[in-house]
Design a protein around this nucleic acid. Structure first.
Lengths: 140, 140
DNA sequence: GTGTTTGCAAAGTGTTTGCAATTTA
DNA sequence: TAAATTGCAAACACTTTGCAAACAC
């Protein structure tokens, strides 16, 4: 678990991928990697940081999210045409997407399975398979 | 097949869903529904229309795509955080997404299967399951 | 004629970029 | 102090909206 020593933890992560541990990156890394798995958008992370008195610009949040993604610390998920989501769980897994609340949730890996993968078009290789189970409130 | 009599065909489709067959809507419906299954973005459809001397504004293309989608003639597909894709195939099926060319292709339904669907979070119902098989050029 | 639809231009989102000032090593 | 990073504001790409003119019925 990465709940303890969030500062050291975040610092180590940044060092490991050769990103300078600036005040902003450290703070964001702490928010992202100190709890369990998380799903954030640039906006939501920026808002969260501000709520905790961390001064960081939205542009820097965008930069950090992309740098973290490139470094393999995050994974980008495309579910909504308007916003970009980032997932701290970089292992292979799938998602629930709540269309009411616009929120992502991980699907436990054992509870879903794709069988019979198709042959990709000629000259192409499968990069990855994303399954999004779209859910909404039961009643209405 | 809807290849023949594209005008009558498009007209019938619009009538069926109670959308006034205006010149613009008819022209777009003809482009969309006269061939086989298609995947378009607002931009690509607008460009295509212009190429065929059909005068229609981008705003109208957006309106039409949304009206057609609402009417069940199209289906919206979320694969890319920046653009919205619309699919003329509204049956249940999945997609290849080429990350090199930003293009969608249908996956024949028999060649893919999702087994063991997960139980949705409490109070939620599964609306639909989208599988996107991301592919890229084999070499590099 | 009356209500609908169109096209334009303006406004709105979410995101990226250029660059001077600041910070890190 | 040299190189990297930040924050701001401007630019961007895509999409939506308000409204007068044009159109369908």
């Amino acid at each position: 678990m990465s709940t303890k020593r969030p500062y050291t933890e975040a610092l180590a992560r940044l060092r490991a991928v050769n990103l300078r541990p600036t005040r902003q990156r450290l703070a964001l890394a702490k928010l992202l990697f100190s709890g369990g798995d998380r799903h954030v958008t640039a906006e939501s992370l920026h808002r969260e940081a501000h709520g905790k008195q961390i001064r960081v610009s939205l542009a820097t949040v965008y930069n950090a999210l992309h740098q973290f993604t490139e470094a393999g610390l995050l994974r980008q998920v495309a579910v909504d045409a308007t916003r970009s989501y980032f997932d701290t769980n970089t292992r292979h897994h799938h998602h629930f997407f709540s269309e009411d609340e616009n929120t992502l949730t991980d699907i436990p890996d054992e509870t879903i399975a794709v069988s019979r993968l198709p042959t990709p078009p000629a000259g192409k290789t499968i990069d990855r398979v994303d399954v999004v189970v779209r859910v909404r409130k039961s009643d209405l």
